[in-house]
Design a protein around this nucleic acid. Sequence first.
DNA 1: ACCTGAACACCGTTCAAGT
DNA 2: ACCTGAACACCGTTCAAGT
Lengths: 217, 217
Amino acid sequence: MADGRPFHHGNLRAALLDQAEVVLHERGIDALSLRELARDTGVSHAAPRKHFIDRNALLDALAERGFTRLAADLRAAASQEPDDFRRVLHAASLAYLRFAEREPALLDLMLAAKVDSSSEAVRRAAELQFDTLTDIGRIGVDEGLYAASDVERLMIVLSATVQGIAAILISRRVTPSQSEVLIDDAIALFLAGAATESWKRFSEQHPWTIRVQGSAS
Amino acid sequence: MADGRPFHHGNLRAALLDQAEVVLHERGIDALSLRELARDTGVSHAAPRKHFIDRNALLDALAERGFTRLAADLRAAASQEPDDFRRVLHAASLAYLRFAEREPALLDLMLAAKVDSSSEAVRRAAELQFDTLTDIGRIGVDEGLYAASDVERLMIVLSATVQGIAAILISRRVTPSQSEVLIDDAIALFLAGAATESWKRFSEQHPWTIRVQGSAS
DNA sequence: ACCTGAACACCGTTCAAGT
DNA sequence: ACCTGAACACCGTTCAAGT
């Protein structure tokens, strides 16, 4: 403490998280160590403990931030295309892919979070992200494409598809531009299927009873 | 070496992998350490190095085994329902979910493998797994559901969906039985969509040019 | 060809003590 | 209330040396 540095950092928690995001982005999750973050932030290696009880708590906080930002991205993308449902789905799906492309390690971290072992804050953030999708899905009802009672089940399947395509992108089995073609295909197939009599009959004969963890709507 | 243990283990590589699978299954990837594996296998902590240059090489070998087993599971499930395409898709998808349920940490590991940084062996094993899906998809052509030229693109979208549903299951946002309902929905929607005029027009107007990394067929 | 033992440079986590 | 410094029990990785 011979330098003029104050004893209290003042904003250590936020500083650690910011630096953690940089490391996660640049060198991946394996390179993320509490001790290095402490060094880079100019505090002792034991200081982070006041803010994050262990490494997992830090990862949880990162995941929470990630969900919040992803939800904002999706909402922003969707609100720019208010007219046509296909274009809304397309914009939101591309926003998801771009997030995956920009922050593959962060998305991996978010998807790796087990609902029952992660913090309440992470759950709430993931919930908000799913609610965003459900809101988007309701536009399809407004346009008369499918029944209101089908919104949740359809959006879960579509978001699983988008998530799966993002996983293919992250593992670099396709290029970013190829993944956009996959999204085009997926949405075309989704919209075609949801509007069929065949699907209508199926969904009536198989009532929906699932309440997804992390869905408040 | 005062015990009667031979100097050469004889089968150290396989023994390490077997033990690694047990640890991965019981305590997850974070608990997987080369030193512990060495202890449990009765060799020095430096012995594994002859067989796995580093921890990542061990993880690669585990992923490779995983892909091979998953492909076998899918093939077995599909071949038990040779008559009806819907039932074949259903059986294969459920096999995928059961694999995810039995070995969540292993599947995470497999999906985390970046194509360009993992070993040739992992790539080949992942390839074989995808080829299995493509083979299954051809049954849909035989049944006149869609064009032969659409097999790859349709199966990629479907497998992305199944993978996404598996991810939802692994993160425990739904129960295993709920995930099966999601699969039912996804397949119903997929089959309904693939058979529409709308999809047929789309796929003709948007020719398929993607060659997925890890697809030999 | 395969394995050992010591050594190095890291970790996460804990805790008494300082300001 | 927040941070430090020392300590403990782990890691992965390397390498000369043994059989």
